[in-house]
Write a protein that binds this DNA or RNA. Structure first.
Lengths: 198, 198
DNA sequence: GTCTATAGGTGGATAGAC
DNA sequence: GTCTATCCACCTATAGAC
């Protein structure tokens, strides 16, 4: 590949990402991506194996970003603080990257075989593992009741996901601004952890 | 309208529903609905105002079914039993009508202006109100800590929705069969109510 | 009320020249 | 590696005959 080839390939990916962020899946098309990138539709096939492959690449990028949000929670000084920060970062990611969140956790891409959970479970595993680890260290230090870390992590996940996804769907619009909702969210998490304390 | 006209109209609706249940939104088309109903694509326009109107009708039907599931929870003899039954019926609906659940609560129809939450908020209101009422009566009888019924109902909703939607997305496939998951779900709800008790 | 025919459009993907 | 030209499939929606 030449240098130009690499540049075009990267350009196509960013344009694809923008288009997908703007329009979602239904209105996503190869031709439009090519138009925006300033190349012909045919050129795309030199770099990607068709529409689904390109979309898949875009989504993989979404996972990477999500993980980067979570990682920032490691700045917390105690297990409890890291767990709370994880929850906060989770919501931050959802609110700041709603389309990605939908794809990853709300199955917005249900019609795309490429993105079926079963087919890319390996992309989810590390992020869930991250949460399990946070829960486990909380159990070890007596912040949470001892038990199966995976089961408890699932409860925590369902909780934050439930709130985040209802918010994104617009069903909790009555909760006010994102900031107000953020406080409600933190309160809910605090209460949940209290209920899971020893 | 003649009797035949009414029959065709009803037939179109059921075929539209089936197609949507099988293929989802992306692959939903008027032509295919017409094919299945045994009429021409043009005939559809005599009965419905186009594709979106037909889809909207299909979704309205989904709401109706969801509400009928919830109503069965009124068979419970105590406020607590009715609340627990509501949670159980909620999951039942989700597992037995996954596509409808996605549309109603997971924003699978995000690209369909017709179905934007803001535009049919009046369809959600009664179902949320149902939950608020269950929570309120629990507060009145001392089953739940007194407070804002809407805030508490939101917490309960986020909880059951979080579990149900993650299950539907395939993210909790590790939880075993639907029956096993059902037990995990009930346990989670019990724990939540315990945390919200006086 | 239903049909056929058709207009007018989108999109994915490929062939072959350069 | 990129282009133009092209094929083919599919869609929504309408016009006008019956």
């Amino acid at each position: 590949m030449t240098a130009d080839g690499e540049q075009t390939k990267a350009r196509l990916l960013t344009e694809a990402r923008d288009l997908y962020l703007e329009e979602g899946f239904v209105r996503f098309s190869l031709r439009e991506v090519a138009r925006r990138a300033g190349v012909s539709a045919a050129a795309v096939y030199r770099h990607y194996d068709g529409k689904e492959a390109l979309l898949h690449q875009v989504c993989t990028e979404g996972f990477r970003v999500f993980f980067s949000y979570l990682m920032r929670a490691l700045a917390g000084k105690t297990p409890r603080e890291r767990l709370m920060l994880s929850a906060r970062q989770y919501l931050r990611f959802a609110l700041e990257n709603p389309r990605d969140y939908r794809v990853i956790f709300m199955g917005a891409a249900e019609d795309l075989a490429t993105l079926a959970p079963a087919e890319n479970a390996h992309e989810y595993a590390p992020t869930f593992q991250f949460l399990v680890d946070r829960v486990r260290e909380c159990m070890q230090e007596g912040v949470l009741r001892k038990g199966d870390p995976m089961a408890t992590a699932t409860l925590v996940w369902a909780n934050v996901h439930g709130l985040a996804s209802l918010r994104l769907s617009g069903h909790l619009a009555g909760a006010g601004s994102d900031e107000e909702f953020g406080r409600f969210y933190e309160g809910a998490v605090e209460r949940l952890l209290a209920g899971l304390a020893p």
